[in-house]
Computed example of a mutant assay.
Amino acid sequence: MFRRKPLEERIAERVAKRPPLKEGKHFEHRPALIVFCVVVAIALVKIVGAFFLMKSGLR
């Protein structure tokens, strides 16, 4: 529209500039690791909270 490359081409160029992923690493960048850890922590808190409520007899 304004003489810009399509989004797919811009993303492909950005991905091509990245260095290859190091052997043994599961996350490409730190924010992905942080988001993963937060999601796992929330799930664990919910499970522990539900277990506590069941043990205390509350519904």
Results as ranks from 00 to 15, higher is better:
C37W: 11
F27H: 04
A16G: 04
I34L: 15
L33H: 11
L33V: 04
G49I: 00
K17Y: 03
L33M: 14
S56L: 11
E9P: 00
F2A: 15
K17E: 12
A50V: 03
R10C: 08
F36A: 14
L7N: 10
I11R: 14
L21Q: 15
F2P: 03
A32M: 07
F27I: 01
I47D: 02
L33P: 00
F36S: 06
A12M: 07
V39P: 00
P31C: 01
V39L: 08
V38C: 07
R10P: 02
I11E: 12
L53T: 05
E28C: 08
R59M: 15
K46T: 07
A43N: 08
L58S: 11
K25D: 11
F36V: 06
A50K: 04
V15F: 06
C37S: 11
L7G: 03
V39N: 10
L44E: 03
L33E: 13
E13Y: 08
F27C: 01
R14A: 14
R18P: 00
E13H: 05
M54F: 09
F2W: 04
I11Q: 12
A16N: 05
V45E: 01
G57T: 12
P31L: 01
V38E: 06
E28P: 02
E8R: 08
R10D: 03
R4V: 01
R30A: 04
L33W: 13
K46Y: 12
K55I: 01
M54Q: 12
H29N: 06
V48N: 04
L53P: 00
F36T: 10
H29G: 04
V45M: 13
V15E: 14
V35Y: 00
E13M: 11
R59H: 14
V40I: 11
R59N: 12
I34N: 09
G49A: 06
A12F: 09
L33F: 11
V40C: 08
V35S: 02
A41D: 03
R3C: 04
L44K: 01
P20L: 06
A50E: 05
L7F: 07
A12I: 09
H29C: 05
F52D: 03
E23F: 08
I47W: 03
A50Y: 03
I34R: 14
V45T: 08
G49P: 00
V48Q: 09
A16P: 00
S56P: 02
V38Y: 05
K55V: 04
I42S: 07
G57A: 15
E23I: 05
L58A: 13
L44C: 05
F51K: 01
A50D: 08
K22A: 15
V45G: 07
V48R: 10
F36R: 07
V39S: 12
K17W: 05
K25Y: 08
V15P: 00
R18K: 09
V48F: 14
E28L: 10
